Simulated assay, not measured.
Amino acid sequence: MSLTSTVADGAQVVTVNAQRIDAAMAIQFKEDMRTETETGAQRVILDLSSVEFIDSSGLGAIVAAMKQLGKDRKLDLAGLTPMVDKVFRLTRMDTVFDLYATLQDALDPEHAAN
């Protein structure tokens, strides 16, 4: 699992450089997210624009990453492809995470959720 991290507009942006987050990658994803986000901004944006497929294990890994951040930090999701977006909406995870069509939308204060 390849993750890259940058800081933009006071938020830490973690980009997933893989086409899938599935059972085969979920454990590595959680470990990599923990490493990337151990310290950092209050707001973490997970850029999923390269991810074409996610299964329940991948969904669970993203929820686990959110919980690892703790109560004082926030995880938002950006750049969901249509298939990944559908999974989040079907499982009602869109009520847990703020979803943004693009990374730019997530960084734009006018689009940012309160």
Rank of each mutant, 00 (worst) to 15 (best):
L69K: 01
R34M: 03
M83V: 15
F88V: 01
S5E: 10
N114Y: 04
R92F: 08
F97R: 03
D22V: 15
I21L: 15
N114S: 15
P109R: 08
R34S: 10
E110C: 03
Q12D: 08
I62S: 02
E38R: 04
D108E: 11
D47N: 12
L107E: 11
F88H: 01
D32W: 00
D47T: 05
L59W: 06
A78V: 13
L99D: 04
P82L: 13
H111Y: 06
D105T: 07
T91E: 07
R89C: 13
M25A: 11
L75C: 01
H111D: 08
A18I: 07
T91I: 10
V63I: 12
V7S: 13
M25G: 13
A41N: 08
M1S: 05
D9F: 12
Q104R: 15
V51H: 01
I21S: 04
V63H: 01
A106M: 11
S57M: 07
S50F: 14
Q68A: 13
T4I: 09
D94G: 05
A112M: 10
D85C: 12
L77V: 11
V51S: 02
L77R: 01
H111S: 14
V51G: 02
T4S: 14
V7Y: 10
I54Q: 00
P109C: 14
D72E: 12
E38M: 08
I54G: 01
V96H: 02
M66E: 01
V44S: 02
T102R: 03
T6Q: 09
R43N: 13
H111R: 11
V51Q: 04
Q28E: 09
M33S: 00
E52C: 06
L46W: 07
D108W: 09
Q28P: 00
G60H: 01
V14A: 02
M83T: 13
V84N: 02
R34K: 13
T6I: 13
A101F: 09
Q68K: 08
Y100F: 11
G10P: 04
E31Q: 05
S56Q: 14
D94E: 03
D9M: 10
V16T: 03
G40S: 08
S5T: 15
V14H: 03
D108F: 14
P109W: 05
V14W: 03
T102K: 06
T39M: 06
G58D: 00
I21G: 02
M93F: 13
D105L: 08
G58R: 00
D22T: 14
L75W: 00
T39A: 15
R89D: 09
S56C: 15
L75R: 01
A113F: 05
V87N: 08
A24N: 09
V13K: 02
D76R: 03
T6W: 03
D98F: 03
I45M: 10
R92Y: 07
R34E: 09
A113E: 10
M1H: 07
Q42P: 02
M25W: 07
